[in-house]
Amino acid sequence: MNATEFDQIVKELQAGNEKAIDGIFIEHYTYVLDWLQKKYQCDIADAKDVYMDGFLKFRRAILKGSVKHGNIRGYLITIVKNIWLQKLEKNKRSVSLDTLETEQADYYLGSKSGLYDEDFDPLTKAETANNLSQQKSNQLDAFQAAWTKLGEKCRRLLKGFYIDRIGLKQLQSVLGYGSYDSIKSMRRKCFNQLKKKSVDLLG
């Protein structure tokens, strides 16, 4: 892939074509998995998980303009390495009952904040949707149903802001809004619509 092809891929991704980066995903998959297994002796299932999580971050880095043609593999390796090391660190902290008790003690003694409640690991839990409380699980179900009912314009805007992490000023030109105020107001309107639909579906 040359620089022009890469620029084209970036433009397509910015326009909402998620398949634009599929080729990159496939191209580096085997190498990165092999690297992870050789470097850290992680098993293949873990390596696959780490690669997928890493590629999600890589996708956002492309949207931000942090990835240049020519450093794709290096960038991916750096991301997956950090994710793997974070996982190791987290596993070390959660493995023993004594550690669990220490964490609980810190929580109840107030030296840690509300973010350390049972849903602190929000994204992983929400993704698996298995360790959520029943209430949270129902909220997630309602949210997913509400998302599909949202109009395309709102979905693009909310996705751009909350998932792709693009600032409103940049989104204004990407999505063709006339002014910063209009996109700011639309974001609020779309968010409230999503919230209302979720609440209605939750019953």
């Binding site: 997928m52 929400a126 993704e127 909220q139 997630l140 999503l194 919230k195 979720s198």
Partner: peptide, 20 residues
Amino acid sequence: VAVMMNASFNVEQKQRWAKL
């Protein structure tokens, strides 16, 4: 809501990549 949005998106992408 942002957490839920990201979680749903991530699951969708991962499933798509797995099929790929």
